Every structure is written in structure tokens, then in C-alpha cells.
Amino acid sequence: MSKIKLLCLPYAGGSARVFLDWKNDLHADIELIPVELPGRGKRFGEALISDFHQLVEDIYQNIKNEISGPYCFFGHSMGSLIVFEVMRKLKAEKQPMPMCCILSGKNPPHVPLRNHIHALDDEEFLAKIFGYGGTPAEMLHNQELASIFLPIIRSDFQAIELYEPPADREQMDCPFVVFYGTEDPYVSTDLVKEWSLYTTSSCEFYAYSGGHFFIQEKREQVVEQVNSVLDGIRATL
């Protein structure tokens, strides 16, 4: 039996490498495919994309050859929103849908962001970014690192802050699994449950103690649950 492909989309400012340390802990029948966004990692030489729907089109074009055979998505924060919109694109193009979709650290599409920060000056913007956690402290003190990092994360925040959700709350014929941190100030423990409005299938929820980057704080538990979810999918094949 073929492996299940796990296509992983990172958070704002992140690259595909944030998932690389999952590889040794995922079960042998799971093929990890970290998806790189333009302007970072192995795509560093490419132009950043600050329009959300153009970004989705870019990711769709880059992953459409990976979706033969059984596959699942995992996205964290901005990655969850990208996954959702890529699924809408797959549905519109009558492409094979994933066996499941794991959405992590993000309110559902119709819940507006409380603050828009992408247009702040560098100092204010960095201060807000550090409020999310997950960003190395040396960014504050290393001008060279900041000069690389700031345009990437500012572009990502512009994309998600100007994102317009679908008016019809289009539903996917795909099981959803939703991860969230109980101390995440950017995700509502009540509103996150409304991801269930976007699927005609099941929608399961798993809470982790931790903030916005609970996938780092509770890495072992998160990867263990990903294994469990995909084991359940394999049992249905």
C-alpha cells in the first residue's frame, strides 16, 4: 500500500523547514512534504506574494502534482487559511480532495483579525510580531537578520490581513481535524469550533495547553496526534 502524503503549510514568516524535524517521528507510512512559500527557503530568490489569492494560486500550482494517491493537509496559522483556500481551488478544478485536513492555530475564515499591523513602521511591527511568540529574539538585535525576515513576514501579514473570506461559506467534502492552543490570544476557544461549518464531513477538535506556537511547545503531542489521525485514515483505505 502506498504511503499517505502529508503536505504541510507553515505560519506567517515561516518556511518549509519548520516541519523537517517531524520526519523522524512520523510513522513510516507517512511521507512528509513540507510546502515552501515563495521568497524563503529553497524559493528564496523568488518574489514575495502579498496578495492572498495569488499566493493560493502559487501554492496550488506547486502542489497539484503531489496529490496523486492518498494525501492529507496540515497547516498552522496562516498555513491553515492557505490550506482551506487551496482546497476550494482543488474542488473548483475537480481535483482529488485530501483524505483529511488538519487545521491548526487559526480561527475559521469568517472570523476577522482583531488588529491589522502590516503597515506599521518596522519597530512597531516587530514588537507586535514578538507578541505572537515563535520568533527568535536575535531578530531584535541583528540588523542583517531583520532585513531578511521583516519583508517576508510583513508580506505574509499583508496577505492574511487583506484576505476576504468566501461569502457563501463553501463546504468541503473532507474530514476536518482542528488543533488549537488553550492560551492562544489570537484564537478563540469558542469560535474555533465554527470550522465545522466548512465541512460536510466530521470535524474533530484537539486542545493543547500553550499559546499560538503550541505546535513547538507541545511538539511531541502534536506529532503523536498527527500520527493517530493518519493511522485512522489509513484504516479506511
Rank of each mutant, 00 (worst) to 15 (best):
S2E: 15
S2N: 14
I4N: 08
K5M: 09
K5V: 06
L6A: 07
L7I: 12
C8H: 04
L9H: 08
A12R: 00
A12Y: 04
A16T: 11
L26N: 07
A28K: 12
E31V: 11
L32I: 10
L32S: 11
L37V: 05
P38R: 10
G41Y: 12
G41W: 12
A47P: 01
A47D: 14
L48W: 08
I49C: 02
D51S: 10
H53W: 00
I59F: 05
Y60Q: 09
N62M: 02
N65S: 15
E66N: 11
E66Q: 13
I67C: 05
I67E: 09
Y71H: 06
Y71P: 02
C72H: 04
F73P: 00
F73Y: 11
F74I: 08
H76S: 04
S77L: 03
G79M: 02
S80I: 08
L81A: 09
L81P: 02
I82G: 00
K89M: 04
K91T: 09
E93K: 12
Q95W: 03
M97K: 11
C101M: 11
I102Q: 02
I102V: 14
G105R: 07
N107T: 06
N107L: 13
P108C: 04
V111P: 04
I117C: 04
L120C: 05
D121K: 11
E124Y: 05
F125H: 06
A127D: 14
A127N: 09
F130W: 09
P136N: 10
P136D: 13
A137V: 14
H141R: 13
A146N: 08
P151W: 09
P151Y: 05
R154N: 12
S155A: 13
L162M: 00
Y163N: 04
A167T: 11
A167I: 14
Q171I: 01
P175F: 00
F176I: 03
V177F: 12
Y186M: 12
L191M: 13
K193E: 10
S196V: 10
S196Y: 00
T200H: 13
S202N: 05
S209P: 10
F213T: 07
Q216V: 08
E217S: 13
K218W: 01
V222Y: 03
V223M: 08
E224F: 01
E224S: 10
V229L: 10
R234D: 05
